[in-house]
Amino acid sequence: MPESEVLATRSGQRTAAGPSLKPCMPGVLLAVPAVVLVTVVVGGGSAMVAAQSLGLMPLVGRPELSAAAYTAHGGDLLVGAGLSLAIAGTSTLLACLVGFTAALIIMQGRWCGKLVAAMSTLSVPLPHIVGAAATGLLLADSGLLARVFGAAEGWPAIVGGPWWVAVIFEYAWKESAFVGLVVAGTLATRPVDYEETAALLGAGRLRRLRHVLLPLSLPALMISGTIAFIYSFGSYEVAWLLGRPYPEPLPVMALRLYNSVSLTSRPEAAAIGVITAAVSLGAALVALAFLRKIPLWR
């Protein structure tokens, strides 16, 4: 920061004597370092992964353009994509519900709000891998709850079960705290009076929720929800630790192939990566289109 700020103020002094104050700061160039860095990572990464998926960077042998990597796991790929979407969708929905409720309670202040705010800050900074390990210790067949309830054989298949409950729980748990804090943060910067005015005007609890609080938090809810969705859609470690071997979510499948010892599997892993990225980008664009329709946005 210092260098560019120095630059900024120097030019400011130069023009301060002039008639116009506008060019006090140099303009768009300030964003250049960030733009370059992101271009390298996002642009470079996407280009290289696309090249690998198309067989242009094989481990051995000569490069040859081919779509073979995309068709090698046809059926599993579709099933995996569906599974990933279902896991990410369900957990995001739960995270938004819980997170929004938490935000409302946090907004109320008092000890209730403080308690919820404090508790939710516990889970936000934890790495997902830690969240996954903790979820396992809590919900597995021999986990804490199964021990406490003495369930033994009767314990349901939560970890590694057919409905991916533990995986969804972990994402919902961690992302709900994220959503809650983001929404509470936005609500805090909005005028509080809306709700009080509405209450004074006699609007009931539900009406205030529907007509005041929900519209006010909708943009923040959409943004944090989308971030949570894309994150859980493209994240590996939780499903790896708490999932079952088949069917596999896309990132788990991609990492298995990436780490697989057969030499053809790297392009296949890259192909799954390309598809995951495409779906994520699509989700982001859809969310953006919805956001544009919300009048409060900007």
Binding site: A140, D141, S142, P162, R244
Partner: peptide, 22 residues
């Protein structure tokens, strides 16, 4: 275990099942 509808993904998971008496 679980009628073969699924399998432990790793020997760690099998060991956890064994440790837990499943």
């Amino acid at each position: 275990w679980r009628e073969g509808s699924t399998y432990p993904k790793s020997s760690r998971e099998l060991n956890a099942l064994y440790a837990g008496g499943q």
